[in-house]
């Protein structure tokens, strides 16, 4: 198939960016979207131009490294799919495809389609873990986890940290990502001791980088792992309780 690309090119974080048009003839419809970009990049290199920078690694929808705005949609038109799992057969011959990086204050552009998502790491560092030094754990079957709780925790834990939720949100909010990790840990018995400090620390850290949530729901629609908005509700409830409980705990300590 023959397509035309309009791609965001930007040399570095401070350089001005612009759209550049590229013809992409003879693309295999079996190819994945990123393989199509590989082909375009090979051709650019052959022509002595610098290839388009974009991130990817696993190319099977699990590492969360890829992520492009394709025709204004985070990860493109197919629901529940990361960019790397999208195939050219979802497009028509002759299509003009616009490709942009994630755009959000919390994700500065590094080059072309590559952004810096380290703000997500800072949020996990703030509390997205269970404190258990290596070697200190009891036998695994001493901790009973009801199957529904394990299943719900797994639903939340499926988040791949791609940032599509942020990119698709009109406010650039990161609630879905943060809620997924909070729910993953707060739903499990192992996560209870740090439940309240975790949610407060993570939400507070999130607010340093990201906008606020006004319940648009775009995030859920864009999420390649179909993380549910319900987790945001759960996080909000825990956060409000935490504000109260954490203060009370602090009071007890003093």
């Amino acid at each position: 198939m023959n397509i035309t690309l309009r791609v965001w090119r930007q040399d570095n974080p401070d350089a001005p960016g612009r759209f550049v048009e590229y013809d992409a003839p003879d693309i295999e419809s079996h190819s994945s979207f990123l393989e199509m970009l590989d082909v375009v990049n090979e051709r650019l290199t052959d022509q002595g131009e610098e290839p388009i920078a974009f991130d990817s690694d696993c190319r099977e929808g699990i590492c969360g490294m890829c992520g492009l705005m394709i025709n204004g949609l985070a990860h493109g038109p197919q629901q529940g799919t990361a960019t790397c799992q999208l195939h050219m057969r979802k497009f028509e011959d002759g299509d003009v495809i616009t490709i942009e990086p994630w755009r959000a204050a919390g994700f500065p552009i590094i080059r072309d389609l590559v952004v810096d998502r380290s703000s997500f790491d800072r949020i996990i560092e703030a509390g997205g873990y269970i404190t258990v030094p290596t070697g200190s754990a009891p036998d695994a079957n001493l901790i009973l986890v009801p199957k529904p709780a394990a299943d719900a925790a797994m639903d939340a834990a499926a988040c791949i940290g791609c940032g599509a939720c942020v990119a698709s949100c009109p406010n650039g909010a990161a609630q879905l990502f943060v809620a997924a990790k909070v729910a993953n840990l707060n739903l499990l018995p192992q996560g209870q001791p740090e439940r309240w400090t975790r949610v407060e620390a993570m939400v507070d850290e999130m607010e340093r980088y990201f906008g606020s949530c006004t319940n648009h729901g775009e995030c859920e629609a864009a999420c390649p792992k179909r993380i549910s908005l319900d987790f945001i509700a759960m996080m909000n409830r825990d956060y409000i309780k935490a504000k109260f409980k954490n203060r009370r705990l602090a009071g007890q300590r003093s």
């Binding site: 873990y129 269970i130 258990v132 290596t134 901790i143 394990a150 834990a157």
Partner: peptide, 8 residues
């Protein structure tokens, strides 16, 4: 170890 860490 992994169970205690909250691996589902």
């Amino acid at each position: 170890q992994c169970t205690a860490q909250g691996i589902p």
